[in-house]
Write a protein that binds this DNA or RNA. Structure first.
Lengths: 100, 100
DNA sequence: TTTAGACTTGACTGATTTAGGTCAAATGTA
DNA sequence: TACATTTGACCTAAATCAGTCAAGTCTAAA
């Protein structure tokens, strides 16, 4: 699940058109279309608005927001999955020894 | 293991000084120092040179190169680990259904 | 079958960020 | 003291961000 898919899902479940959601977010509907298709990214502040509008978890949206960015970086990479593991191990290692 | 650590390790195992490796890579030694401490990133082409110089796997270097970049993005993120999972699931999903 | 409305797409833009460095001074160390 | 390394300040070109707008496409319904 990407952020774009999630936003589209939330919007449709609320029976809302792109135009309406776009205006709530104060962006154009063409831009929102691209966001839903992961061709453009929203500002982080927009996630707050979305979580309020659809009453959903901001943490989940943030995970999708960052995760979709990461995916865009590695999607055409041979070593994409291994790169994810490198990053994961590093996070785990730092946590273990409490290095900030 | 980050790319910086790896490079330092390879360099020291070869008994080489930063100045020497830096000159092989045609960069300044101050810059290499930052690379080894993950404050700056090398160009991708540099990885090839390094793999030749130390006779090590280019794939591993690339995984570390991308992975260290990903780590820099998520290291201060609450949802960092979840974001990695989002990206991983997306890769796996696309592979499963053969979506390019 | 026309047409209205929902959505997608392509071309473009200006501001901001990042990439990929340099150099000199400060610091660590044998 | 000499040499290796780290750090901070700075730099420029290129890329990315966060959009707009108009034209094109898709799909129901009249």
């Amino acid at each position: 699940m990407t952020l774009g898919q999630k936003i589209k899902e939330l919007r449709e479940q609320a029976g809302m058109f792109q135009r309406e959601l776009a205006s709530q977010l104060e962006i154009g509907d063409g831009f929102l279309s691209k966001v839903e298709n992961n061709q453009k990214t929203l500002k982080r502040e927009h996630l707050i608005k979305i979580s309020e509008l659809f009453n959903c978890s901001i943490s989940e949206l943030e995970a999708l927001w960052i995760g979709t960015k990461l995916y865009e970086i590695i999607k055409d990479e041979q070593e994409g999955l291994n790169a994810l593991k490198v990053a994961e191990q590093e996070i785990i290692y730092r946590k273990k020894y409490d290095i900030l």
